[in-house]
Nucleic acid binder design. Structure first.
Lengths: 140, 140
DNA sequence: GCAAGATGTGGGTATATACACATAAATAAA
DNA sequence: TTTATTTATGTGTATATACCCACATCTTGC
């Protein structure tokens, strides 16, 4: 066994390195790549619950709850009880919308740099390969 | 901005999903994919220091120190001062070697399943794409 | 309408990750 | 040789992630 051959560690390592770069690029907006992504899910979906966000992002519900708590503490999102009293619906605060506006061009910039480097064809290849790997592995 | 387009989140999500599968596959050996990888670095390198392991894996030194502490607590690795008294050299315990032996075929099995699905060509594509992305992004 | 099961969420615990700072030890400079 | 600098590591703090379990609420069967 060689670590360089492991598909899992290959992906894991690449994801961490890319995350560091995106985090650095988004730092002036005060959010990490992960937080920016979550803010965008909240913005895009309609008053999503914790569960809806977990499903959209493919993360565990408890993870989402904790990630949301961080954004809540920074007053980028707020939560209120839904019509179903078990659920909590999430929405952006004005500061949250502002953070998204500030981060969006920073994200676009680093994203475009990578897309230019890859080109359309290889970008499509990458998407296809990641989908193949994850669909090979979905849990029942 | 759409989360489905973000290269960083695409990779991050795929890495997490793959990690869950590898973790599940390796569970009978009592180690996670991440731990198995680290044990293999310890095994392959010659009495590596924390720094050497950090460089090999591309992780932060403090992360490595903490990951090693978990393996040390489970008595899969042990650490001793090197000739340079600042360093600590890491090596596998007998239980650590046993864990690697037990995990190796489990890893091989899930890895082969994915490789079969991908085929040689797309496997090479993936490796190339990940290297392109990470080399586009290496820190000074 | 009430009991039984299903569902959404939080909390406990553990691992993983990284940055900033502190400390000890080795090396270089004076 | 004494001092300054570099280097290896650990610690504090914060976020991210996931499993299991508890609890409250909703839904269904009767």
């Amino acid at each position: 066994m060689s670590n360089e051959d492991c598909l899992c560690m290959n992906l894991r390592s690449a994801a961490l390195q890319l995350s560091r770069s995106y985090d650095e690029a988004l730092a002036p907006a005060g959010v990490s790549a992960n937080q920016f992504s979550l803010l965008n899910y909240v913005r895009t979906l309609d008053a999503p619950t914790v569960k809806a966000l977990a499903e959209a992002s493919g993360l565990d519900r408890s993870t989402l709850g904790r990630n949301l708590r961080v954004l809540e503490k920074q007053e980028l999102v707020f939560m209120q009880a839904g019509s179903d009293a078990r659920t909590r619906e999430v929405a952006l605060t004005p500061a949250g919308r502002q953070a998204v506006r500030k981060a969006a061009p920073l994200w676009q910039s680093i994203q475009d740099g990578l897309l230019d480097r890859l080109g359309d064809e290889r970008r499509a290849q990458l998407k296809e390969l990641l989908q193949e790997l994850t669909s090979a592995v979905v849990r029942a």
